[in-house]
Each structure stands twice: as structure tokens, then as C-alpha cells.
């Protein structure tokens, strides 16, 4: 059972991961997100990780897989709120999430999706 609330607003799916998830919980979140996205035909999906203290290689892999899957569904995938310490840890581990579009805050990610001009990524 997925315990992360997934909100729908302005054709955008927003999920804020507020608690540390077990591997199984991450997987059920992933599948619920993909199902919802498929049903709602969104413009994009935003995942907010601003309260996560640890993103290990497992979580990183899930996020990077999600990017590919959501893009395959024809929606944009945006990540926001990666903490500084989490980011440098991921880089040192060798997990560079460079193909994910990242934003500092949910607000910036949301503005990006709702505005028309996407010149700078």
C-alpha cells in the first residue's frame, strides 16, 4: 500500500515524500504514481524530496527509473528539494542524477511546468 499522498493540480501530479520509505513502500509508490499518471494524462510529475535525509543508491535508482518511465508516458518529470548534503553524497557515491530536471523548491518546479517558455532547463 502506498502511503505517500499524490496530489493533482493544474494537470500536474505532485508527491511530497515526507517519511523514509522501505524498499517495498518505494515500489508501491512508484506503481501508484505511474498508474495515476496514465489515467490523468498529466503535463508533468513533480516529486519533492525536501524532507529526505538520505537518498541511497536504491532510492536514486528508483528516481532515475521513474524519470524514464514518466517521460515514456509523455509527461515531464521534475525533482525538487534535494538537500545539499544528500546531493554531494550521491555525487561521491557515483550516482549522478544528471538526466533528471531538478529544482530548488516545489514552487520553482511548479512555475516551470505552468509557464510556457522553457528556454532554460
Amino acid at each position: 500500500m502506498n502511503k505517500i499522498p499524490i496530489l493533482y493540480l493544474n494537470s500536474i501530479l505532485i508527491a511530497s515524500i515526507q517519511t523514509e520509505l522501505t524498499d517495498e513502500e518505494v515500489l508501491s509508490f512508484q506503481s501508484e504514481l505511474l498508474t495515476k499518471n496514465n489515467n490523468l494524462l498529466t503535463k508533468g510529475v513533480i516529486i519533492d524530496v525536501s524532507t529526505l535525509d538520505v537518498i541511497d543508491s536504491y532510492m536514486a535508482k528508483v528516481l532515475s527509473d521513474l524519470t524514464t518511465m514518466v517521460k515514456l508516458q509523455g509527461s515531464a518529470f521534475l525533482l525538487c528539494g534535494v538537500k545539499p548534503a544528500v546531493s554531494s553524497t550521491l555525487v561521491d557515491m557515483g550516482m549522478m542524477l544528471t538526466k533528471i530536471d531538478t529544482f530548488q523548491s516545489l514552487e520553482k518546479a511548479f512555475n516551470f511546468l505552468t509557464s510556457n517558455d522553457r528556454k532554460y532547463q
Partner: peptide
């Protein structure tokens, strides 16, 4: 430091998995 805490916790996560 916060960054050392994060690094240590992440390493534990990898090895326990």
C-alpha cells in the same frame, strides 16, 4: 557535520541492503 551524518547513514544503508 550534517554532511558527514548523511554520508555515514547512506553507507549504512548500502551495506545493510
Amino acid at each position: 557535520s550534517v554532511s558527514e551524518q548523511t554520508r555515514f547513514a547512506t553507507a549504512i544503508s548500502e551495506i545493510t541492503r
